[in-house]
Each structure stands twice: as structure tokens, then as C-alpha cells.
Nucleic acid binder design. Structure first.
Lengths: 336, 336
DNA sequence: TTGTATGCGTTATCAT
DNA sequence: ATGATAACGCATACAA
């Protein structure tokens, strides 16, 4: 038997009475090779379960056919749908997907990126962690010629391709929607005010208030955490003290927290408080009450991000490409 | 400048006036090396962004430090939570995660598995596609010494480590719950009757009927698809014709479909129809009405699956390990 | 059309 | 403690 099941090109060539090069040619597209020889090789290869070793091939080719996806979390409607989109494009092109979860931890993010300088991935698609820090470390990627595409949550100061949605405009619109529904004390729920995405959404909120002549109250910007229990407490306190009659959640998770709190405090949605939220939840209509959402084209964003990355692989200077897709506000009972 | 940003061990050694071997030693744990030399090497390496090439290292070591995860879909509460669990364990051990989505397509599954014989991954964690077919092709993995762990959706005839939940028992219990709530005509919603997981859950349903002396009606086994519109039609027809007063959804998605249909047909849940479902939805309490669920420990299953895989990496004969975790029935308003 | 030889970047063995 | 060298498995340039 020998080392059963670990046949390499050399052994295969011996069994076929051919040279390694000829066998190799059978597996590559180009290079001349006799059709019959090729078929004979492939047939035996299949029988013996031979496949060219990935590391050896890639060491020569200096590429991995891997794409690294770095996201804060995966158990999240938005990100899982986006990954789905990336997968569709990557699979078409024969690329593989590596997944990294930062849990919004900046150190993890840095560690992952640093771990990708070694050829494990040919490119990176990333939605950045929530923490505000020095991210110049990312510039090293450029030096290594590893293409990078940001999506949704981006670092504005890093010069690379980006796929985002019209956060400012839809936030403005969402806030106007609440105002038109009669809300006067609208809370804006954020997880991280510093993050560019939080800023843009907040700016839309602020400008809508101003546009409508409503006063801005700093307390109504409710800075939440990633901890579900803490958020419950934060929101409970907010509802107790702020006379809130409208909630704009910049992130799905915070809308759910608001639902739980309102339920427990016997606050009726939408009669006493109206709620709108960024959300990719497909069953938003099934909630009690059905949630009015600003729905981002998550899947499509993934497709676009992957497409940009492949453009960069092809040598096109896509670094400056900024794709902006539109979110859609879907009105449901929570803002009736 | 030269080929900027693509420094290798040879160049690094030259700049340091050292040999490749010494530089290499600085990066590996073992082998003797002068501490000062080591620090000097690491310092310069960091400055130049040098990292040992992944393909070269792995070609030598004959391993990739990659784990392949093959699942039907990722935009799914259960699977994304399970992946989260796998990630936690894998990250701890310095392993990377490759993700493959089969969309319940058997050909894709086969293609992916076949694509993993080449060293790209050291092991596979898999939840199988829904189609019933000949899966003996998987035995090749064993020959290649690529450890395999199934979770949740398994092929019973493939002899390898498995992580599942007590599907039969919890299905029995779930059905009993409906019966005790007064249901007489309980529909069982499946996506694929052939798949082992569907069978086990169905058996629990059947035995509970028998146990309670309720008649079994074949029409009440409602075979659904993966297409959301088709399911809507199938269920609408079922509700129109079968006098259903209870629904047991073997899969989350089908419970949602039932919710939509009931809403549109003005069927009140739980007054006219009670609904229970396998589900990993974290916001089940927020649904209208709150959904009674059989909740699988998704995250934990991922952790267990990964742990088993590492045990196999370590050479332990875990092939026969069958971990069975318990699901939990959480009663909510949909079965009140 | 096929074979020979070299190098991809690393690490382990053996020498010094 | 450090250096020279072979080998991991493959794919190409060149020779035949």
C-alpha cells in the first residue's frame, strides 16, 4: 500500500510510464498534449483520486484562489446575506472563501489582517470593526499588492474600493417618516457613535430634526453596547426618563431590544412609541407589531463587493471605485 | 525597490547577513538560536513586513491549518450560529475556516468535497444537503486521511463522527405538546422526507399520534420545497382542505410560511391553529404571536463538532463518536 | 508531442 | 549557535 491515498504527480507519472511534465500538462489548460494521453492520464488520476497538491501549485503560481472575508459577526442577517452574495460571485470564478469574525474587536481585526500577508488569501473583503483607532496598518496590504474591498462599514481614511448604501439619505428619510407620523421626541439608537456608519446615520437624523424645526436633545442619542443585557438596561432607563415617542434604531439588534423593553414596560408600539430600524430581517412583517425597516440590499452588496475585488484582481485600478446602493424604507405597523 | 512588498526569507537573510536557516529558526519554536539574533531578525522582519510564505510552509508541513465547513446555507439562524461555534474553537487553535454553501444541491456538495482532496483543508465539518443519493463518494475522504465530522444533518451510512440533537424525542414531545393543547389535526411540515433528519422528526410525530390514539392521515404530512412561493401555495392549499388545527414545522422556514398563510387567510394563531417549530430564531418571542420553538443548541453543536474534529487531528479514533445534544422546547403564545 | 531540469519559499537534517 | 543542502509537489522554459 505505501502511503495509501496520498499519491503525487511523480507516482502517477510512473504508473503511466510518463514524465511528470506530461501529467502536469493534462491538468492545466494550455501546453500541448496529445488528447489520448490526456484522457488516459485523467482516467487513471480519477481512479487513484489524484489531484494536484494545492500548496505546491499555489507556491508556483503565487496565488491561493482564496478570498478572505472579515466581518464583525456571522449570526446576523445583514452579514450572512452579504456573504451569500459574495459566495455566489466567488464560486462562479472558482474562488474559495475564508471567514474571519472580529466580534467588533479591533485587535482581532488587526491580527487577522496581519495574518493575511502570507499568501493565504489573494484578496480581502471587509466590514470593519466598530472601534475607532489608527487603521493605517491597513496600508501595508497595498504594499503587498493584496486588493481590499470594504463594504457597509468602512474606514473613510483608507483609500480603497468601497460598497456602501446611501446611509445619510435613508436616515434622513427614516427620521422624516417618524416626524410625519407625529413623533416629537425621537431617540436615535447607536452602537458606536465613532464609526463612520454611525456618524452618517446620525447626521441624517440630526438634519431631519433641523429640517423640521424640531429641537435636538443630546440625551436622545442613546449610545448602546453589544451586550444584550446592558442594552436592555440602557433602553429601560431611556424610556423612563426621556418621554420618547419615536425610536430610530441604527442597527437591527437595537430595535429588538426596544421591542423587548417596550413590551416589559407596557409601552404600546406604535400607539405610544413608533419604531423604525435598519434591518435585513426577512420576517420583519411577522413581528408584533410588524417592523418598519430601512432594508439594505445585503445580498447585492456582497455581489458588488466581490465583483469589485475581481476587477482589482484583473488589474483594473478599482481602488477609487465607490459603489453606493440604495436602501429601501418599507413601512409597516410599527410606525402606523 | 525591486519587487517591493514581496520579500522572502532569502532576501531577509541577505539583509541580515545571516543564512536562511537561521532566519527560519527565528520564526519556529524549536531549534536553538541565539536570543539576540532572534530578536534582531524579528525586528527587521516586522519592519519589512516579512511573513513566512504560507504555501511553502504548508507544502513542507503537508497541512493547511484550514477547516472546511460545508453547509446548505448561511443566511439561516441555525447554521450561522453553528458556524459561530466552530469559529470559536478553530480560532483558539489557530485554524482558519473555509466556507462552502451547497444550497441543498447534491452536485455542489459532491463537487466541494472532491475539491478538498488536494490539501486545501485538513478536515471537514459538514451538514449534508437535502437530497437523497449515493454518498459513498465520501468514503474517499477516509482514504485521504481527511477527518470528517457531520453535524445536524448527517448521512447515517457514512461511518464518521457526528453531532446531532435528540430529534426523535423532541419531535415526540413537541407533538404531544400540541395534542395536549387540544389539537386533533396536526400537520407535519417537512422539506425533504427522505433526509434522515426529516425521517427522525417525522417518526417522533407519528409515534406521538399513535401514543395518543390519534388517527394518522397521510395528507397531513405536508412535503414542502425550498421555494418560498411554492411553499405559500402548498400551505394555502393544505389549510383550505385539511381542517388543520395544529402545525409542527420541522424547519423554521416552514413555520414562517405558515404564519404568512394564516395571516392572509385570517386564521388566528393560536385560537384556530397552534404552531410549534424547530427554530433557532433569537427573536421568536417578538413574533406575532410569539412562536413556541424547539430550540437546538446551534452554537454548542458547532463547538462540539469542531472539538471532535480536533480530536481526530490529534489522532484519537473519534470516528465512532456520536455526540447527541438536547434541544429545548420553549412554550410561547403560538400554542397557548 | 513528450521529457529534462530548474525554481517557487520554506524547514529539517546534517554538518561545522 | 549558525550554515549548507535537500526535499516538499508542481509547472514552466527549454531541449529533443
Amino acid at each position: 500500500m505505501g502511503n495509501s491515498g496520498n499519491i503525487n504527480i511523480k507516482e502517477l507519472a510512473q504508473r503511466l510510464n510518463l514524465s511528470k511534465s506530461t501529467v502536469s500538462r493534462a491538468f492545466r489548460g494550455h501546453s500541448d498534449i496529445n488528447l489520448e494521453t490526456k484522457e488516459r492520464i485523467l482516467k487513471v488520476a480519477k481512479e487513484l483520486n489524484y489531484q494536484p497538491n494545492h500548496h505546491a501549485s499555489n507556491l508556483r503560481a503565487q496565488q491561493s484562489k482564496n478570498i478572505a472575508i472579515i466581518v464583525p459577526e456571522i449570526a446576523n442577517n445583514f452579514f450572512s446575506q452579504a456573504i451569500d452574495g459574495i459566495e455566489t460571485v466567488a464560486r462562479e470564478r472558482g474562488y474559495h472563501l475564508l471567514i474571519y469574525l472580529t466580534a467588533d474587536n479591533f485587535e482581532s481585526e488587526v491580527a487577522y489582517v496581519n495574518d493575511l500577508y502570507n499568501g493565504r488569501a489573494d484578496g480581502i473583503i471587509m466590514s470593519v470593526s466598530g472601534e475607532a483607532n489608527d487603521h493605517s496598518y491597513m496600508n501595508k496590504l497595498e504594499k503587498k499588492h493584496i486588493p481590499l474591498v470594504f463594504f457597509d462599514r468602512v474606514y473613510d481614511d483608507i483609500n480603497t474600493a468601497k460598497v456602501t448604501t446611501n446611509d445619510y439619505a435613508s436616515s434622513f428619510e427614516a427620521t422624516m417618516h417618524l416626524i410625519e407620523a407625529g413623533c416629537k421626541n425621537i431617540a436615535f439608537l447607536v452602537t458606536n457613535k465613532q464609526l463612520s456608519i454611525g456618524k452618517k446615520r446620525m447626521q441624517g437624523y440630526l438634519d431631519a430634526l433641523k429640517h423640521s424645526g424640531l429641537p435636538f436633545r443630546d440625551e436622545l442619542i442613546v449610545d448602546c453596547s453589544n451586550d444584550i443585557n446592558k442594552n436592555y438596561d440602557i433602553l429601560t432607563h431611556a424610556f423612563k426618563t426621556l418621554a420618547i415617542d419615536g425610536v430610530f434604531a441604527s442597527v437591527e439588534r437595537l430595535a429588538f431590544a426596544a421591542y423587548y423593553v417596550c413590551h416589559d414596560m407596557n409601552i404600546n408600539i406604535p400607539n405610544q412609541v413608533k419604531v423604525i430600524s435598519f434591518s435585513s430581517l426577512e420576517i420583519a412583517p411577522l413581528l408584533n407589531p410588524a417592523l418598519t425597516t430601512i432594508t439594505q440590499p445585503a445580498y447585492d452588496m456582497g455581489v458588488q463587493a466581490a465583483t469589485l475585488l475581481f476587477r482589482m484582481f484583473a488589474g483594473e485600478e478599482a481602488v477609487n471605485d465607490q459603489v453606493v446602493l440604495s436602501s429601501k424604507i418599507i413601512t409597516r405597523n410599527s410606525t402606523l
